[in-house]
Every structure is written in C-alpha cells, then in structure tokens.
Design a protein around this nucleic acid. Structure first.
Length: 628
DNA sequence: CGTCTTTGACCTGCGC
DNA sequence: GCGCAGGTCAAAGACG
C-alpha cells in the first residue's frame, strides 16, 4: 500500500513533520505542523489571521509566517495543492508588507513625526479598510478552500478505509488459503481420501489425509517374528521432522491450491483397473505437486532409513516406503493440523451383529472401555492388505445398544473387495467432503463445543459433523430406515438404502426420486446462508450424535426445491459428494438392487445431475469412470 | 502350527 | 507436574 493511501490525518501530520528539513522544524514547530497538512491549512490560517491581524499586526510576525509557509510549502508540494499554496503566498506576501507600512507609520506619530493630515488619515483609513476587505475576502476564500480540502480529506479517508478493508480482506483470504493449503497438503499427496478403495498410485506417493498410509508395522509385527527395531518406538524426532515437512511443503507452495473432486480408478490388478471412487484432491497447479515431491520423498526416505523396518515385497515402492514409518507417528506428526489429521467417517447402523459387515476384513487389535459408555469400544485394523492403514472402531451406542457405531479412519492402500466398494465410496465421499471443509462458517456445534472443521450449523442445525472428538467426524446415520432395523447391513444392503447422506454441509442428501419427507429418516432443507447450509432435522431419533448428548428439536421445514438446488449447486464439494453418493447408488444397479428395480431412476438421476453440471461416474466398478 | 482374540500394560495428548 | 482418557502394543490364550 502506498503511503498516501494509508495516511490518516494523524499519520499525515506525523509523516509530514518528519518529512521536513531540520531548518524548517527548528523554528516553527507549531506552524509547521499545520502547514504540513494541506487539509489543515485553511483552518489554521484562518485562526491565525483572525487572531493575529487585529491584535498584533506586527509585520515581522507576518513576514515570518509567510517565509515559514514558503519553506514548508516547498517541502510539501506533493501534499499541498499548488494552487492554494500559490494564492496564499501571494496574499501572505502582500498583506504583511501593507501591514508593515501601516504599523511603521504609527510610531512616527508618537515620536513626533509630522501629524497626519485629515486627507492622509482618511487615505490610510481607506487603505486599512481595503486591506480588511481584502483579508476578509481572502479568509472566505480560504474557508472555501478549507471546505474543499475537508471534502477531499473525507474522500481520501473513505478511500483509505475502503482500501484498508480490501487489504484486510486480502490478508484474511491469504491466511485462509494458507490454512486450506495446510489442510490440503496431505491430501495433495493422497488422493485416496477417506476410506475409499484408493490404491496407492505409483506416480505419486500418497499418504492418507487422516494418516499417511502407513503400512502398519505393528500389524506386520504381529504376523512376523522379525523385530522391527527401534523404529517402532515413538520418537518425537520423527514428529518434528514430519511437522517440518508439512511446513516445508506449504512454504514451497506459491501456486494456487485447487480442490476438486477427482474420480480415479482403482485396480484389482497391477495395472490399475479400479473402481470409481470419488475423491477430493488438492493439488498444486505446478505439475510436481501432483506427483512425488522430491523434497518430501527425500525426507521420507531419510527418515525411513532411521526406522529400519522391513519392506513388504508385494507392495509398491511408495507403500514400502510407508512401511518404514511407525504408524502412530505418521498419524500424529504429519498431520499437525487437527482439521487434517484423523478425519473420520462414522456410520451408525441398527444391527445385532457384533460388527458391521462392510466387505473388508478386519483384525481386532484392542478393546477399551470408553468413558461414558458401558459398552466397550473395539479397535480393528484392516487386514485385506498387509499394510493397510485403515482402522475402525466399533462401539454400541450408550443410549440405544441396538445401534452400532462404526467409525472408519484412514485410507485403504489396496483394492477393495467387490462388496466393500459401495461403503467405501460413500464414506470416502463423506470424508472427502469433511476434509474439504470449504463452507465452514461456524466454530461451534450446538452443545458440542468448538469444532475444528465444523460446518454451518444454526440453532436447530444438525451436527452431523461430530465435534465431540478432537477429530472432525462425519456421521452417516442409517439407523432410522425402517427397513434397516434390524438388518444386517452389508455393502449390498447399504447400496439399497434410501440414502440418507448427511453431508459435511449439513445438508441431507438423498436421491431425488426417493427424497420423501415422510418416508425418509431425514428431510433436509438446504438453506444457502453465507455460502453454507443448514440442516433441519425432522426426526430426533436420527440426530443422535456419537456421544448421544445432543438433543435436537424436531422441525419440519418444507422448503422449496429451489432452495435445495441453489444450495447444492453453490457448493462444489457438496455436488461432488452428491455425485459420488449417487454414483454409489447407481453402481448397485448391477446387483439388482434399488436402482435395478427402478431402471428409470438412474437416468432420472443422471439427468438431474446433468442439470447441475454434474456427471455420474461409470457405475461399473471395473470400468473407467469419468471425472466428475 | 498358524491365526485370531483377549487383555493388561504402556504411550501420548490434554486439561487442571 | 499430575491424573485422566483414548489409543496402541504385545504377550498369552483360544481356536481351527
């Protein structure tokens, strides 16, 4: 910002004073200050003339003032309008001289000079009268100038304020971008957001946004007697290194972070034939950020040498690299930002089964009694692939023990089994949306305290983004579907569900054709408020947070489709998640599920989405999908 | 015998 | 610094 823009009146005074040369400042501080600021000139001069002229019309003073003003004006020609200065100089030079002549005459009377004749006296009187008249005119003109200057000052002040606001806004935006970048940097290296069936891509060593795709050494340890050495121990050093790593990546990023949904393919074979999973990928516009970052790789490689764990022959290079990382450290150090690390997707289902059959294989590695819940919490690790970092926690709801709460965390580093794709893609989309967090406008969730990555939630908002934990959690509540209670929820059944997809924006998502406020567990009304959405629940039972501590009133808000449409189209993250969820639904077409029984539904959905600029990825899991 | 589960101990972060 | 709670480890036992 230039100096002129940032100058308030006070600053002008200060800077102008310091701008002055020493000579000018030494003898005329008071005047100098007023002279230095062009906007103050008229007022000060008016006062000075008003006071000094009648009372003490000493020519020397006036001459001094004039000379001072000359010197000061020459020092502030940038800020003093030349026209005013020039006029003032002319008048000022003229006046003192006249006054001096007049005053110099007075002593002659006292000193016994020749007495004034009446003619001369009247002449002097008329001169004085003229002088007074001229001075008054000058004063009026100066006052006009003063007014104009003040107007200018007002305008400049307004301009300054506007620019200042711009500056503040720009700074705030820059900070937000940096924050977003911070949270997106891990994603940029890990397109496999959430628990989707993303497979590590060779082109870009990837790490989960929740944890950096560790090949769980601990898991390997349990299977192999080979000691993994000191690398397994929790080491603060690694945390610091990785913390620096994040910063490093951030610092080196000058370009613009782009967050966009990316639909990639995962493969069951080595070539990479993958099922469609919608993922949010933040990447730099610079190509190197889409791939491996040399610096990052170097960091990882050097650290990996320290850990000294073994490399799984069957896994890819990036995975083997990850193998060398103690899983705990990767979770807690790479992702220093709480909005980035440990994003979770919680699925609430009503089932009697001990765990939800989501198509994956899990190995229980721990059980703990959590406070406030008599039901123990079980910890599972994905065992589909040896190094898969995905973990899940299974716990029954304290209030309703028929409800099973399954919380997923991490990214599968392997192709998912056929039956796990639907769940994975859904939770992946939810996690991706959660991590995108673009519409965060509220820091608090009702009754849940501060949220790192919460979303717009009004007084009656539904905290589907759970903030009870220090990790951002998105909850997919599937408990209120009558058909789902009780039911054994497997992947196929999940696909058949009339989707109740509470998004990170708090907008309940359901396929349009089944979005029925009566039948559906939720009826979400999207309200585009300041770029975010508010969700108004209709069924309190469906609103149990994971902690079960939030009681929310049931409200029916039958808003217009227009509002929902506007809300949907306003948020690219939501649209992406919407497309993903629907894609997941459509993918079940091949299984003869909901969509299969309603062949027109798919086309209707596609048409509806196309109307919003969305495309539906290929439904078949083994075929390539199109980017959303 | 290999794999999985159980469970007490340990580690870490956080609040006071 | 201490205690608490969540999360993880890893030895021991169970099971096929």
């Amino acid at each position: 910002m230039s100096l002129g823009m940032g100058l308030s009146t006070g600053e002008s005074r200060r800077l102008s004073t310091t701008d002055m040369g020493n000579g000018e400042r030494s003898g005329s501080q008071g005047i100098g200050l007023s002279m230095a600021l062009p906007f103050e000139i008229s007022g000060d001069m008016t006062n000075r003339l008003d006071c000094e002229s009648p009372r003490n019309s000493r020519a020397s003073d006036s001459a001094t003032v004039a000379s001072q003003f000359i010197s000061l004006s020459s020092n502030h020609r940038e800020t003093s309008p030349p026209r005013v200065t020039q006029q003032f100089l002319e008048n000022e030079n003229r006046q003192p001289m006249n006054l001096r002549n007049k005053t110099s005459d007075q002593p002659t009377v006292v000193d016994g000079s020749p007495p004034l004749t009446p003619k001369r006296s009247s002449q002097i009187e008329s001169d004085l009268h003229n002088q007074l008249k001229r001075t008054r005119n000058e004063m009026e003109r100066m006052m006009d100038e003063n007014q104009q200057m003040r107007k200018m000052l007002t305008l400049m002040t307004a301009e300054y304020n506007a620019l200042h606001q711009h500056l503040l806004t720009a700074v705030a935006q820059q900070q937000q971008q940096q924050e977003a970048m911070k949270s997106m940097v891990p994603q940029s290296t890990t397109p496999n957001t959430g628990i989707g069936n993303g497979q590590a891509q060779h082109a870009s060593p990837q790490r989960s946004f929740t944890e950096p795709s560790s090949n769980s050494v601990a898991s390997e340890r349990s299977r192999s007697p080979t000691p993994t050495g000191t690398g397994l121990s929790r080491s603060p050093k690694k945390s610091k290194v990785l913390s620096n790593l994040s910063l490093k990546m951030e610092d080196s990023s000058d370009g613009k972070i782009i967050v966009q949904p990316v639909s990639t393919l995962t493969s069951m074979d080595a070539a990479g034939d993958r099922s469609p999973v919608n993922r949010f990928q933040a990447y730099k516009e610079e190509p190197q950020f889409q791939g491996a970052s040399p610096d990052r790789d170097h960091e990882f490689a050097s650290e990996a040498q320290d850990s000294g764990s073994q490399e799984e022959p069957s896994v890819g290079p990036e995975q083997s690299e990850q193998n060398r990382w103690p899983p705990n450290k990767r979770v807690k150090s790479v992702l220093q930002d709480t909005s980035v690390r440990n994003a979770r997707v919680s699925v609430r289902t009503r089932t009697d089964a001990p765990t939800m059959n989501d198509g994956c294989q899990w190995r229980k590695y721990g059980q703990k009694l959590a406070k406030g819940n008599p039901c123990p919490r079980a910890y599972y690790r994905c065992t589909v692939a040896p190094g898969c970092p995905v973990r899940k926690q299974v716990q029954r709801c304290a209030e309703d023990r028929s409800i099973l709460i399954t919380t997923y965390e991490g990214t599968h580093s392997h192709p998912l089994p056929q039956g796990a794709v639907s769940m994975a893609s859904t939770t992946s989309a939810a996690a991706g949306m959660l991590m995108s967090g673009s519409t965060s406008s509220s820091d608090r969730v009702e009754g849940l305290g501060p949220v790192e990555n919460s979303f717009s939630l009004g007084a009656h908002a539904m905290p589907m983004i759970s903030a009870s934990a220090p990790f951002p959690t998105i909850t997919l509540d599937l408990t209120n579907n009558p058909a789902a209670s009780p039911m054994h929820l497997d992947a196929a059944n999940l696909s058949r569900l009339p989707y109740s997809f509470p998004t990170a924006n708090g907008l309940q998502l359901q396929p349009p054709s089944i979005m029925n406020p009566v039948q559906s567990p939720y009826y979400g009304v999207a309200k585009p408020t300041t770029g975010a959405f508010q969700m108004y629940p209709t069924n309190p039972l469906s609103l149990q947070s994971q902690g079960g501590s939030v009681q929310r009133p049931a409200h029916f808000f039958h808003d217009s489709v227009t509002a929902a449409t506007a809300a949907i189209t306003a948020d690219p993250n939501f649209t992406a998640a919407l497309a993903t969820a629907i894609t997941s639904i459509l993918s079940s077409q091949t299984n003869g599920s909901l969509m299969g029984s309603n062949p027109n539904l798919g086309e209707a959905l596609k048409g509806a989405l196309a109307g919003h600029g969305l495309q539906i990825a290929a439904a078949k899991k083994d075929t390539a999908s199109q980017p959303l």
